[in-house]
Protein backbone atom coordinates (compact mmCIF):
# COMPACT_ATOMS: atom_id res chain seq x y z
CA UNK A 1 0.00 0.00 0.00
CA UNK A 2 1.08 3.53 -0.62
CA UNK A 3 2.13 5.76 2.20
CA UNK A 4 0.52 9.13 1.54
CA UNK A 5 2.44 12.33 2.24
CA UNK A 6 2.34 16.00 1.44
CA UNK A 7 5.47 17.75 0.36
CA UNK A 8 5.82 21.49 -0.15
CA UNK A 9 8.79 22.87 -2.05
CA UNK A 10 9.75 26.19 -0.47
CA UNK A 11 11.78 27.13 -3.55
CA UNK A 12 8.64 26.99 -5.63
CA UNK A 13 5.85 28.18 -3.36
CA UNK A 14 4.79 31.68 -4.37
CA UNK A 15 2.24 32.21 -1.58
CA UNK A 16 -0.66 32.40 -4.00
CA UNK A 17 -2.97 30.67 -1.48
CA UNK A 18 -4.46 28.67 -4.32
CA UNK A 19 -4.19 25.51 -2.22
CA UNK A 20 -6.10 27.17 0.63
CA UNK A 21 -8.89 28.22 -1.70
CA UNK A 22 -9.01 24.88 -3.49
CA UNK A 23 -9.29 23.06 -0.16
CA UNK A 24 -12.06 25.32 1.12
CA UNK A 25 -14.06 25.02 -2.05
CA UNK A 26 -13.67 21.29 -2.55
CA UNK A 27 -14.59 20.41 1.02
CA UNK A 28 -17.22 23.10 1.66
CA UNK A 29 -15.38 24.44 4.69
CA UNK A 30 -16.98 27.24 6.72
CA UNK A 31 -15.36 30.55 7.66
CA UNK A 32 -12.92 30.29 10.54
CA UNK A 33 -11.84 26.76 9.70
CA UNK A 34 -8.65 26.51 7.65
CA UNK A 35 -7.52 23.01 6.96
CA UNK A 36 -4.62 24.38 4.97
CA UNK A 37 -2.75 27.64 5.24
CA UNK A 38 0.33 29.24 3.74
CA UNK A 39 2.90 30.57 6.19
CA UNK A 40 5.51 33.02 5.02
CA UNK A 41 8.73 33.42 6.94
CA UNK A 42 10.81 36.58 6.76
CA UNK A 43 8.11 38.19 4.67
CA UNK A 44 9.67 40.98 2.62
CA UNK A 45 13.20 40.27 3.83
CA UNK A 46 16.11 38.47 2.32
CA UNK A 47 15.58 34.75 2.49
CA UNK A 48 11.79 34.93 2.39
CA UNK A 49 10.16 31.52 2.09
CA UNK A 50 6.58 30.35 1.98
CA UNK A 51 5.22 26.96 2.84
CA UNK A 52 1.78 25.50 2.58
CA UNK A 53 0.92 23.60 5.77
CA UNK A 54 -1.89 21.27 6.70
CA UNK A 55 -2.08 18.02 8.57
CA UNK A 56 1.18 16.19 7.80
CA UNK A 57 -0.38 12.78 8.46
CA UNK A 58 2.43 11.86 10.85
CA UNK A 59 3.30 8.19 11.31
CA UNK A 60 3.40 8.72 15.07
CA UNK A 61 0.85 11.48 15.39
CA UNK A 62 0.87 13.49 18.66
CA UNK A 63 -2.82 14.35 18.18
CA UNK A 64 -3.74 10.66 18.14
CA UNK A 65 -1.55 10.00 21.16
CA UNK A 66 -3.08 12.77 23.27
CA UNK A 67 -6.76 12.45 22.29
CA UNK A 68 -8.64 11.62 25.52
CA UNK A 69 -11.37 9.73 23.63
CA UNK A 70 -9.02 8.03 21.13
CA UNK A 71 -10.91 9.17 18.04
CA UNK A 72 -7.98 9.11 15.56
CA UNK A 73 -7.06 6.27 13.25
CA UNK A 74 -4.60 5.78 10.40
CA UNK A 75 -5.88 4.36 7.13
CA UNK A 76 -4.07 1.73 5.08
CA UNK A 77 -2.75 4.61 2.95
CA UNK A 78 -1.13 6.19 5.99
CA UNK A 79 -3.70 9.00 6.19
CA UNK A 80 -4.51 10.17 9.73
CA UNK A 81 -8.28 10.58 10.09
CA UNK A 82 -10.61 11.12 13.03
CA UNK A 83 -14.15 10.14 13.94
CA UNK A 84 -16.33 13.19 14.59
CA UNK A 85 -18.95 11.05 16.32
CA UNK A 86 -16.37 10.27 19.01
CA UNK A 87 -14.65 13.68 19.19
CA UNK A 88 -15.70 15.81 22.16
CA UNK A 89 -14.08 19.06 21.01
CA UNK A 90 -11.62 19.36 23.90
CA UNK A 91 -8.83 20.99 21.90
CA UNK A 92 -6.01 18.71 23.07
CA UNK A 93 -5.07 17.77 19.49
CA UNK A 94 -4.68 21.46 18.66
CA UNK A 95 -2.29 21.93 21.58
CA UNK A 96 -0.31 18.82 20.65
CA UNK A 97 -0.03 19.26 16.88
CA UNK A 98 3.28 20.93 15.91
CA UNK A 99 1.73 22.23 12.67
CA UNK A 100 -1.49 23.72 14.03
CA UNK A 101 -3.56 21.49 11.77
CA UNK A 102 -6.61 20.78 13.98
CA UNK A 103 -9.30 23.43 13.55
CA UNK A 104 -12.47 24.18 15.48
CA UNK A 105 -15.63 25.67 13.99
CA UNK A 106 -16.21 27.84 17.06
CA UNK A 107 -13.90 29.53 19.48
CA UNK A 108 -16.37 30.81 22.04
CA UNK A 109 -16.10 31.25 25.79
CA UNK A 110 -16.35 28.24 28.10
CA UNK A 111 -14.50 26.05 25.61
CA UNK A 112 -17.38 25.86 23.22
CA UNK A 113 -15.34 24.74 20.24
CA UNK A 114 -17.49 22.27 18.38
CA UNK A 115 -15.97 19.15 16.90
CA UNK A 116 -12.44 19.22 15.55
CA UNK A 117 -11.95 19.51 11.80
CA UNK A 118 -8.72 18.94 9.92
CA UNK A 119 -7.22 18.01 6.58
CA UNK A 120 -8.33 14.51 5.60
CA UNK A 121 -5.95 14.19 2.64
CA UNK A 122 -9.25 14.39 0.74
CA UNK A 123 -9.98 10.91 2.07
CA UNK A 124 -13.30 11.55 3.86
CA UNK A 125 -13.94 9.84 7.17
CA UNK A 126 -15.18 6.62 8.73
CA UNK A 127 -18.60 6.90 7.05
CA UNK A 128 -19.59 5.10 3.86
CA UNK A 129 -17.47 6.39 0.93
CA UNK A 130 -19.22 9.19 -1.00
CA UNK A 131 -22.19 9.24 1.38
CA UNK A 132 -23.77 12.61 2.12
CA UNK A 133 -22.97 12.10 5.81
CA UNK A 134 -19.31 11.72 4.98
CA UNK A 135 -19.32 14.86 2.87
CA UNK A 136 -21.12 16.89 5.53
CA UNK A 137 -18.70 15.91 8.27
CA UNK A 138 -15.40 15.52 6.48
CA UNK A 139 -15.68 16.89 2.95
CA UNK A 140 -14.82 15.23 -0.34
CA UNK A 141 -13.39 11.72 -0.56
CA UNK A 142 -11.16 12.12 -3.62
CA UNK A 143 -8.86 9.27 -2.67
CA UNK A 144 -11.75 6.84 -3.07
CA UNK A 145 -12.27 8.27 -6.56
CA UNK A 146 -8.64 7.56 -7.37
CA UNK A 147 -7.68 11.23 -7.23
CA UNK A 148 -5.16 13.08 -5.08
CA UNK A 149 -5.93 16.01 -2.74
CA UNK A 150 -7.14 19.03 -4.69
CA UNK A 151 -4.73 21.47 -3.03
CA UNK A 152 -1.76 19.69 -4.58
CA UNK A 153 -3.53 19.00 -7.85
CA UNK A 154 -4.27 22.72 -8.28
CA UNK A 155 -0.88 24.05 -7.18
CA UNK A 156 0.18 26.44 -9.94
CA UNK A 157 3.93 25.99 -9.46
CA UNK A 158 3.77 22.36 -8.42
CA UNK A 159 5.32 23.38 -5.13
CA UNK A 160 2.79 21.38 -3.19
CA UNK A 161 2.93 17.69 -3.98
CA UNK A 162 0.76 14.93 -2.59
CA UNK A 163 1.04 11.22 -3.06
CA UNK A 164 3.09 8.19 -2.21
CA UNK A 165 6.11 9.11 -0.11
CA UNK A 166 8.57 7.21 -2.32
CA UNK A 167 7.38 8.92 -5.48
CA UNK A 168 7.51 12.32 -3.82
CA UNK A 169 11.04 11.86 -2.55
CA UNK A 170 12.13 10.77 -6.03
CA UNK A 171 10.66 13.93 -7.52
CA UNK A 172 12.24 16.08 -4.86
CA UNK A 173 15.64 14.49 -5.25
CA UNK A 174 15.58 15.16 -8.96
CA UNK A 175 14.55 18.74 -8.34
CA UNK A 176 17.39 19.35 -5.89
CA UNK A 177 19.93 17.85 -8.21
CA UNK A 178 18.72 19.93 -11.10
CA UNK A 179 18.38 23.08 -9.08
CA UNK A 180 21.58 22.99 -7.08
CA UNK A 181 21.54 25.53 -4.31
CA UNK A 182 18.59 27.77 -3.72
CA UNK A 183 17.31 29.60 -6.75
CA UNK A 184 15.88 32.39 -4.67
CA UNK A 185 19.04 33.71 -3.02
CA UNK A 186 21.56 34.19 -5.78
CA UNK A 187 21.87 37.89 -5.20
CA UNK A 188 22.84 38.41 -8.82
CA UNK A 189 21.91 41.98 -9.61
CA UNK A 190 22.87 44.69 -7.16
CA UNK A 191 25.72 42.79 -5.51
CA UNK A 192 27.55 42.79 -8.76
CA UNK A 193 26.53 46.25 -9.98
CA UNK A 194 29.27 48.04 -7.99
CA UNK A 195 27.03 51.07 -7.54
Amino acid sequence: MARMKFYCDAERCIECNGCVTACKNENDIPWGVNRRRVVTIRDGEKGERSLSVACMHCSDAPCAAVCPVDCFYTTADGVVLHDKDICIGCGYCFYACPFGAPQFPENAAFSSRGKMDKCTFCAGGPEQDHSSDEFKKYGRNRLAEGKLPLCAEMCSTKALLAGDANVLSDIYRKRVINRGASVLDWGVNYDSAKL
Binding site: E15, N17, V20, G32, N34, R37, V38, V39, T40, I41, R42, D43, L51, V53, P62, Y95, A96, C97, P98, F99, G100, Q103, N107
Partner: peptide, 19 residues
Amino acid sequence: GSSQVKSVDSNILINPQGD
Protein backbone atom coordinates in the same frame (compact mmCIF):
# COMPACT_ATOMS: atom_id res chain seq x y z
CA GLY B 1 6.01 34.10 10.23
CA SER B 2 2.94 35.57 8.67
CA SER B 3 -0.10 34.11 7.00
CA GLN B 4 -3.14 35.27 5.10
CA VAL B 5 -5.11 32.87 7.28
CA LYS B 6 -6.01 34.67 10.47
CA SER B 7 -6.55 32.41 13.43
CA VAL B 8 -4.82 31.44 16.67
CA ASP B 9 -1.13 30.73 16.01
CA SER B 10 -1.74 30.49 12.25
CA ASN B 11 1.52 32.40 11.66
CA ILE B 12 3.62 29.80 13.47
CA LEU B 13 4.95 27.12 11.17
CA ILE B 14 6.08 24.58 13.73
CA ASN B 15 5.44 24.54 17.46
CA PRO B 16 7.93 22.06 18.92
CA GLN B 17 6.35 22.36 22.39
CA GLY B 18 3.22 20.56 21.26
CA ASP B 19 4.80 17.15 21.00
